[in-house]
Design a protein around this nucleic acid. Structure first.
Length: 356
DNA sequence: AAAACGTGGTG
DNA sequence: TCACCAAGTTT
């Protein structure tokens, strides 16, 4: 523990980049740099920082500036809310704090645009408070060196990493420690292809030792919803025998029961064309009539939006022998005995094939 | 709690 | 090419 901070700061004092906001303890400039650098690379933000400092050397000059001028200077940086928050924060500090930045993380966080990260950064760098910063770099370095696979974009993850950073910080200068940790992540422990062989933590790094550097840090999977279109064939004889199908192990609803289905990634039309395909997954030469085509059901899963259409067929007869490949013929009175996805249950209810 | 918010660099 | 990522915060 102790050693981690010592080595880190030793590395930092020797290897840090020379950046303008590192040459001041002025909380105004620290704040300005932190807001500008949110979600922004140094190479992109550097010139903006210089422009803002020279145009607005203190919080009062920023307060006095016309909005348009501030936006103009911000142009091209992105996240334009930051410019608006910047002006509001400047007014707050000028009016409610007499131009003096509050010194605690808690108080700083009351100011617009200052969240947990920025508050800790100002408190530690400008005022020497022992508040650990936890940004993307810190997540990466700590998750690798200490082998933490808690997803960082969760409440649990944030708590865990903040707590660890706080313990590691003990005995070190908070501002230096925080900047060292971020700098190390930015220039050495990079997201991809870090130079582990020459790393100061070569010996102790958990990820390096276990060859999982590229797998850390862990993030929650993006909830990118995929649309899928399910076209179900609900085939039934006149005397009430329904063809069902057990779902396989490779998709959603494992081992539940539904019907023969055509799955596509886009909407299919006309629907009638699907029936030829149905014959391939059930019986050849079905003699059928289309009894009903349902509306599209939308069924939401964590990562999928299922668009389901049920095509109900009346067939003359199923073959006598029991079909292969997970197909089964059941009496419609027994349908409730089979576990089905909620989507299918809904359909069956709507069709009065089951009660409730 | 998840989504929106911008732009530019990278492998 | 394009998904991923960058000194996050707000709603």
């Amino acid at each position: 523990m102790e050693m981690f901070g010592r080595k880190l700061i030793k590395w930092y004092l020797k290897n840090q980049r020379k950046l303008p906001w590192r040459e001041t303890k002025d909380p105004y400039r620290i704040w300005l740099s932190e807001i500008i650098m949110q979600q922004t690379r140094v190479s992109q933000g550097l010139e903006y920082y210089r422009k803002f400092v020279s145009n607005f050397p203190d919080v009062f000059s920023l307060t006095a500036a016309p909005e348009t001028k501030v936006y103009k200077l911000w142009q091209g940086l992105g996240y334009y809310n930051r410019a608006q928050n910047l002006m509001q924060a400047a007014r707050t500090i000028a009016n409610e704090y007499q131009g003096q930045f509050p010194e605690t993380k808690e108080e700083l966080m009351k100011i617009k645009g200052i969240g947990p990260y920025t508050a800790a950064a100002i408190a530690s760098i400008a005022f020497g408070k022992p508040d650990p910063v936890v940004d993307g770099n810190v997540f990466r370095v700590l998750s690798r060196v200490f082998g933490i696979d808690t997803p960082l974009d969760t409440a649990k993850g944030k708590k865990e990493f903040t707590s660890l950073a706080g313990r590691l910080m003990k005995g070190q200068s908070p501002g230096d420690f925080n900047q060292a940790l971020m700098e190390f992540g930015a220039v050495w422990c990079k997201p991809r292809n870090p130079d582990c062989d020459h790393c100061i933590f070569f010996e102790e790094c958990y990820a390096r030792k276990n060859n999982i550097v590229s797998q850390l840090p862990v993030k929650k999977p993006k909830t990118r919803i995929k649309d899928r279109f399910f076209y179900y064939m609900v085939a039934q004889t006149k005397n009430g025998v329904i063809l069902m199908k057990k779902r396989g192990p490779d998709d959603i609803w494992k081992n539940l029961y539904d019907f023969p289905v055509i799955v596509t990634n886009e909407r299919t039309k006309p629907l009638e064309n699907l029936i030829a395909l149905f014959e391939k997954i059930s019986f050849n030469d079905m003699i059928y009539t289309i009894k009903h085509i349902s509306n599209e059901y939308i069924h939401l899963l964590t990562h999928q939006r299922i668009h389901a259409v049920f095509i109900r067929l009346i067939v003359e007869n199923f073959p006598e022998n029991t079909p292969e490949n997970d197909l089964l013929l059941i009496n419609k009175n027994d349908i409730e005995k089979y576990p089905v996805p909620r989507l299918v249950e809904q359909y069956l209810q709507d069709q009065k094939l089951i009660k409730h």
